[in-house]
Amino acid sequence: MRFPSLLPAALALLLTTASCSQAQSDTSEKGDKKAKNAKGGDRRKDKTAASEVQGLVKVGSLKGVVPESSGLAQAPKAGHYYSFGDDGNRPILYEITGTGEGAGKLDVPADNTDWESLSRDGQGNYYIGDCGNNESTRHDLRIIKFRPDTPAKAGIIAFQYPDQNEFPPKKKQRNFDCEASLWHDGRVWLFTKDRGQSSTSNVYSVPDQPGDYTAKKVGAIAIPGQVTDAALRPDGRRLVLLGRGELFILDGNSWADILKATPRQVALTGAGQTEGAVFKDDKTLLISTEQGGLFEYTLP
């Protein structure tokens, strides 16, 4: 009767097997998570993440309507908006409703080198920021000014930065990519997307009339992110700088005060690569993503 002497060995084998099984299970779970992350994360979670951000609501989709939406502006018709595709897409403004339905197209007689932003003034003129500059190598930065009723008469506001002397500069100094611009008080204002390491959005401005200019450097805003669009509230007292999956709010009683304000950061977790923003009303932003999402965000 030697069975009792086998019990410790059997028990040890049992514990070892369970331990290995658990380790394999943990490894499998980690592998699954890595696989999901490699493919862009858990899509089911992505779909519901936006609902977890207070005030953020998905209101429509631009898929099949606007290819890689990179900006937004109010269209002449109330409740309608213009958007456009990123670089490599056709030079077209797509008119959409507030829920993403297509409502028309407008051909613009200008190349889309790297369109990144869109705004309008109080007289019905629109300004397309063709100043995307990922590698800080462009010598042909420009803003296209036009009216929707006479697009063939588009004018060009060409500009260069006063502080760029190398094309490209060193990687840590590449802060000459601009994906955010807006019209205000007779000038077009440019907010750079810092591709260096300073976490700073430099602010420049140029006149709103066609011509060739050296932009005026106005200042800089400490932004812990990369700016992809800009929107100014109609009363001129709140500026919103959009980032990728986040936004920054600057308030002030004047434009000068706003540019000196400390930004308040708001996470838009789950929205995706947010690229376009426009005020729908004083408290609500309409936000588009490059993946085709269309959201409303109620500002705090």
Rank of each mutant, 00 (worst) to 15 (best):
R43N: 08
R44S: 13
R44G: 11
K45R: 12
D46C: 13
D46W: 07
T48A: 09
A50R: 03
S51N: 11
V53N: 09
V53R: 15
V53F: 07
Q54H: 06
Q54S: 12
L56Q: 09
L56Y: 05
S61P: 01
S61F: 06
S61Q: 10
S61E: 15
L62P: 00
K63V: 09
V65G: 00
P67M: 02
P67N: 15
E68P: 00
S69T: 07
S70Q: 09
G71T: 01
G71N: 02
A73V: 06
A75I: 04
P76F: 14
Y81Q: 03
S83T: 15
D87P: 02
G88C: 05
R90C: 00
L93V: 04
L93A: 09
I96T: 05
G98K: 11
G98C: 08
G104N: 09
P109I: 13
A110N: 14
N112S: 04
W115R: 06
E116A: 15
E116D: 05
S117A: 15
S119G: 08
S119E: 03
Q123D: 14
N125I: 03
N125C: 15
Y126I: 10
Y126S: 07
Y126A: 10
Y126C: 11
Y127K: 04
I128P: 01
I128T: 04
N134F: 14
N134C: 06
E135W: 11
S136R: 00
T137G: 05
T137I: 11
H139F: 14
H139N: 15
R142L: 08
R142M: 07
I144Y: 04
I144H: 08
I144W: 05
R147Y: 03
R147Q: 12
R147C: 12
A152V: 14
K153R: 13
G155C: 09
I156W: 13
A158N: 10
A158G: 12
Q160Y: 02
D163N: 09
Q164T: 04
Q164M: 11
F167S: 02
P168H: 04
K170P: 06
K170V: 06
K172D: 11
Q173T: 03
R174L: 08
D177Y: 03
C178N: 14
E179K: 15
A180H: 05
A180N: 02
A180W: 02
S181C: 14
H184G: 01
H184A: 12
D185I: 04
D185F: 07
G186D: 04
R187M: 11
W189L: 01
